[in-house]
Amino acid sequence: GKMTGIVKWFNADKGFGFITPDDGSKDVFVHFSAIQNDGYKSLDEGQKVSFTIESGAKGPAAGNVTSL
């Protein structure tokens, strides 16, 4: 299901970062391709987001990332 969290950091040049889930679980990798907006796909440190957990090739990653 949907989770919420805070963006820990995001490197716009490399197109990835990490989200710290509100439930205290392990930080989740986020790739820019998972960001659900029409414009420039980037996130800001400290931004609140909702997301799902998808299993990627390198382990769990955030999917369906939407800013709240």
Score class of each variant (00 low, 15 high):
Gly1Asp: 15
Ala34Ser: 12
Leu68His: 10
Ser55Asn: 15
Gly46Glu: 04
Phe32Ser: 11
Gly39Trp: 06
Thr66Pro: 01
Lys14Cys: 06
Tyr40Ala: 12
Thr52Trp: 08
Asp38Ser: 10
Asp27Tyr: 04
Ala57Arg: 14
Glu54Leu: 09
Thr20Cys: 10
Phe29Gly: 02
Asp23Ala: 05
Ile35Gln: 03
Gly15Tyr: 02
Gln47Tyr: 05
Ile35Ser: 03
Ser33Leu: 10
Phe18Trp: 10
Ser67Val: 15
Ile6Met: 10
Lys58Pro: 09
Ala61Leu: 13
Gly5Val: 00
Gly59Asn: 07
Phe32Asp: 03
Pro21Tyr: 07
Val49Trp: 01
Gly39Phe: 07
Leu68Arg: 08
Pro60Asn: 11
Gly39His: 07
Ile6Thr: 14
Ala57Gly: 12
Ile19Ala: 01
Asp44Gln: 15
Phe10Val: 04
Gln36Cys: 06
Asp27Glu: 10
Asp13Met: 14
Gly15Cys: 03
Glu45Leu: 13
Lys48Ala: 11
His31Pro: 03
Ser33Glu: 05
Ala12Asn: 11
Thr20Leu: 11
His31Arg: 04
Gly59Ile: 04
Asp44Cys: 10
Val65Tyr: 00
Gly5Gln: 00
Pro21Asp: 02
Ala57Asp: 13
Phe10Asp: 00
Asp23Ser: 08
Leu43Thr: 02
Asp23Ile: 06
Ser25Gly: 13
Ser55Leu: 14
Ser25Trp: 06
Leu43His: 01
Asp23Val: 07
Asp38Arg: 07
Lys8Ala: 08
Thr52Met: 09
Asp23Trp: 06
Gly46Ile: 02
Ile53Thr: 06
Leu68Met: 12
Gln36Tyr: 07
Asn11Gln: 07
Phe16Ala: 02
Thr20Asn: 06
Ser55Phe: 11
Val28Lys: 03
Ala62Met: 01
Gly24Leu: 07
Pro21Arg: 04
Thr20Gln: 12
Gln47Glu: 13
Thr20Pro: 00
Gln47Ser: 11
Tyr40Glu: 13
Ile53Trp: 07
Val7Thr: 04
Val28Thr: 03
Ile6Val: 14
Asp22Tyr: 08
Tyr40Lys: 15
Gly1Arg: 04
Thr52Asp: 12
Ala34Pro: 02
Phe16Leu: 05
Asp27Gly: 04
Phe32Cys: 07
Val65Ile: 06
Gly56Lys: 10
Lys2Ile: 15
Gln47Asn: 08
Glu45Thr: 15
Pro21His: 03
Ala34Phe: 04
Pro21Gly: 03
Gly63Pro: 02
Asn37Ile: 14
Met3Asn: 09
Gly39Asn: 11
Tyr40Arg: 13
Ser25Lys: 09
Gly59Lys: 07
Thr66Gln: 14
Val49Lys: 00
Lys2Arg: 06
Thr20Lys: 11
Ala61Ser: 11
Asp13Ile: 14
Gly24Thr: 05
Lys48Met: 11
Val65Asn: 01
Thr66Tyr: 06
Phe16Gln: 03
Gly56Ile: 05
Ala57His: 15
His31Lys: 03
Ser42Gly: 13
Ile35Val: 11
Pro60Phe: 11
Phe16Met: 08
Pro21Ser: 05
Lys58Met: 13
Phe51Met: 03
Ala34Glu: 09
Lys48Ser: 09
Asn64Asp: 11
Ser55Glu: 13
Phe16Thr: 03
Ser33Trp: 06
Phe16Val: 06
Gln47Cys: 04
Glu54Tyr: 09
Lys48Gly: 07
Trp9Phe: 10
Asp13Phe: 14
Thr52Pro: 01
Ile53Gly: 03
Val28Ser: 02
Val7Ala: 02
Phe29His: 03
Ser33Arg: 11
Thr66Met: 10
Lys14Thr: 06
Asn37Val: 15
Phe29Leu: 04
Pro21Thr: 06
Lys41Tyr: 07
Val28Leu: 13
Gly46Met: 05
Thr4His: 09
Lys8Ile: 06
Lys14His: 11
Gly46Leu: 05
Asp27Ile: 05
Ala12Pro: 13
Ser42Asn: 09
Gly56Met: 11
Ala61Phe: 15
Gly63Asp: 08
Phe32Pro: 02
Phe18Ala: 04
Val49Asn: 00
Lys41Phe: 09
Asp22Gln: 07
Gly1Thr: 10
Asp23Tyr: 08
Lys58Cys: 06
Gly24Tyr: 06
Thr20Val: 15
Lys41Thr: 09
Gly56Leu: 08
Gly46Ala: 05
Gly1His: 06
Ser50Val: 09
Ile19Phe: 02
Phe29Tyr: 10
Ile6Lys: 12
Gly15Met: 04
Asn64Phe: 10
Ala61Pro: 02
Asp27Asn: 08
Val30Ala: 03
Gly59Ala: 06
Phe18Gly: 02
Ser42Arg: 13
Gln47Pro: 01
Asn37Ala: 14
Asn64Glu: 13
Tyr40Asn: 13
Gly1Lys: 04
Lys8Glu: 02
Asn11Leu: 07
Pro21Met: 06
Gly5Trp: 01
Gly24Glu: 05
Val65Gly: 01
Trp9Gly: 02
Gly56Trp: 08
Val65Lys: 01
Lys26Cys: 06
Ser50Pro: 00
Ala62Tyr: 01
Trp9Asp: 02
Ser67Arg: 14
Thr66Cys: 06
Ala62Phe: 01
Ser33Gln: 08
Leu43Lys: 01
Asp27Ser: 06
Phe16Ile: 12
Asn37Glu: 13
Phe10Glu: 00
Ser67Cys: 08
Asp13Tyr: 15
Asn11Asp: 14
Lys41Asp: 07
Ile35Met: 05
Lys26Met: 11
Leu43Asn: 01
Ala61Trp: 14
Pro60Arg: 12
Ser50Lys: 08
Leu43Ala: 02
Gly63Trp: 09
Lys26Val: 13
Ser55Thr: 14
Phe18Cys: 03
Phe29Thr: 02
Leu68Cys: 06
Gln36Lys: 12
Asp13Val: 13
Ile35Tyr: 05
Ser42Trp: 13
Ala12Tyr: 11
Gly24Ala: 08
Ala12Arg: 14
Ser33Phe: 05
Leu43Cys: 03
Ile19Pro: 00
Asn64Cys: 06
Asp22Leu: 10
Phe16Cys: 04
Val7Tyr: 01
Gly56Glu: 12
Lys2Pro: 15
Ser55Lys: 14
Ala62Val: 03
Phe32Val: 13
Val7Trp: 02
Val28Met: 05
Gly17Ser: 01
Ala62Ser: 03
Pro60Cys: 05
Lys41Arg: 13
Gly15Ile: 02
Gly39Tyr: 10
Lys26Thr: 14
Ala57Cys: 06
Phe10Trp: 13
Asp44Ile: 14
Ala12Gly: 11
Gly46His: 06
Gly5Thr: 00
Leu68Lys: 07
Pro21Phe: 04
Lys2Cys: 06
Lys2Ser: 14
Lys8Val: 06
Gly59Cys: 04
Ala57Gln: 13
Lys14Leu: 13
Leu68Trp: 05
Asp38Tyr: 09
Thr52Phe: 10
Ser42Leu: 12
Gln47Ala: 12
Pro21Ile: 05
Lys41Asn: 08
Gly5Lys: 00
Pro60Gln: 12
Lys26Tyr: 10
Gly63Tyr: 10
Val49Met: 02
Asn64His: 10
Ser25Leu: 07
Gly15Trp: 02
His31Gln: 04
Gly5Leu: 01
Ser42Val: 15
Ile53Ser: 04
Asp38Pro: 14
Ala62Gln: 01
Gly59Leu: 06
Gly24Pro: 03
Phe51Glu: 00
Val30Arg: 00
Asp22Cys: 08
Tyr40Trp: 15
Pro60Leu: 14
Thr66Asn: 11
Leu43Val: 05
Asn11Phe: 09
Lys41His: 10
Lys8Gly: 03
Pro60Lys: 12
Glu54Gln: 10
